[in-house]
Every structure is written in C-alpha cells, then in structure tokens.
C-alpha cells in the first residue's frame, strides 16, 4: 500500500517538475544506461534533488538513491514519507555529535547493494553568489572505499531562478541537468587535489561559465 502510494506520488512529482521546468537531461559525458554511478551535483535549492531524479529515465531512477540529511527529511511524517518511500533516500545525520552510525559506511552499504547514488559534495545548500562552494571530504572518502564506481559530475542549471531562496512559488523556467564525463580517484591521489579536480569537472559544465547564457 505504502509502495503504491509512493509510486503514485513519485509520478505526480515528476509530472509537476516537468510542467514547471520542462526538465531535460543533457547526457554530455555519459550515456543514460543502467550502470552503477555516483552522481555528484551542485546544490542551490531544495528542488535540485527531485529535478535530477525527474530527468533520470525510469529504469535508472528506480536504482538511484539520493543521499540526504536525516534532520531535514525526518522532521515531519510527510517529509519522512517523501524521503524514505518516494525517493528511497539514504538518510544520514549531518550533525556529528548526534551520530549513531558512520554516514560514509551507510553510503557504501547502499553502493554495495547495487544502487547508484546522488550526492551534493558541497555539504549543504550554496547560498552565495559563487557557483560552487569548496567540496567536503565525503566524496573523497566514498571514492577511496569504492574507487571503481564512476563519479559523474551533474550540473543543475537555472534552478535558483525558478525558486530563489526564501520564495515559495516556483516560476516556470526551462531547466537542464547536464551530466559530464566520469571522474575517478587516481592511485595515491591525495584528498585536496582530488576535491579540486572533482569541483573543476563540475564547474566546467556550468553554461554561465562558458559565456553563453543558456
């Protein structure tokens, strides 16, 4: 019953997201095929994750779990339903002092079950004017544990105009999710250069950076 309800809610959500944003995937560096991946994306709005989820073809979507903050997604019954049942999120606790389990271990466990995952390596929403915040160590720790899985840079474009922070009504604007070429942790690569490399790979997908405003 819950599963049916979750499937229906998921369908309504993707339809609504398409209506507002005409969401489109731009498969620039990878093909939309069933392969285990870690999608790492920029994070400016709460709508980022549902949007990436929307543009994934259904077969891929079923096998992809977003990593999300437990303190946000477990706040109310409705959010818990959306987070746990609709998105099947891997819920982790961002607050180190409240933690009962290691978040990286939980993510690795999801990978070992065969799921692809979506992560936001900036660690929180970017409220600044900079396109990206410095990445947290999480993506490095995941890559160290499972170095063979493709790390796919995923740029969500234009979403901050659809719903600027503090606004509640989304404006319908076209929105594109751009998937870049996968990144891998090199042998003996240190954390700092790896984080910079990931961040650059993601930033390079930003259409605003290449001059043409899209």
């Amino acid at each position: 019953m819950i599963r049916l309800l979750a499937a229906v809610t998921g369908q309504i959500l993707t339809t609504f997201a398409r209506f507002i944003t005409a969401a489109r995937a731009d498969w620039r560096g990878i093909e939309p095929v069933r392969k285990q991946r870690i999608y790492f994306a920029n994070h400016t709005s709460n709508a980022d994750m549902p949007l990436i989820w929307t543009v994934l073809p259904p077969a891929l979507r079923r096998e992809t779990r977003p990593v999300a903050a437990a303190d946000y997604w477990l706040k109310s019954k409705l959010r818990a339903f959306a987070g746990r049942d609709v998105f099947k999120a891997v819920l982790i606790d961002r607050r180190a002092e409240h933690r009962t389990e290691d978040p990286i271990a939980k993510i690795v466990e999801a990978l070992d079950e065969g799921s692809s995952i979506i992560i936001f390596p900036e660690g929180g929403r970017n409220m600044t004017d900079d396109p990206l915040l410095p990445f947290k160590a999480g993506i490095f720790n995941i890559a160290t544990r499972r170095p063979d899985v493709d790390l796919v840079p995923t740029w969500v474009d234009n979403i901050s105009n659809i719903m600027p922070k503090g606004e509640v009504i989304p404006v319908p604007l076209a929105c594109t999710v751009i998937f870049g070429a996968p990144v891998h942790l090199k042998k003996d690569e240190a954390m700092e250069p790896f984080l910079t490399r990931c961040s650059d790979a993601l930033g390079a997908l930003n259409p605003a950076q290449s001059g043409a405003r899209g």
């Binding site: 606004e167 404006v171 319908p172 604007l173 076209a174």
Partner: peptide, 16 residues
C-alpha cells in the same frame, strides 16, 4: 513559449 522566453530574460530576485 513564455517559459522559453523568460528563461532567457534578465532577472533578479526582485522580479520574482
């Protein structure tokens, strides 16, 4: 059409 057009117009938060 409006969605396509407004995607390309200049805007800031004040225009929301």
């Amino acid at each position: 059409a409006l969605r396509e057009f407004m995607t390309l117009t200049q805007k800031t938060r004040a225009d929301h």
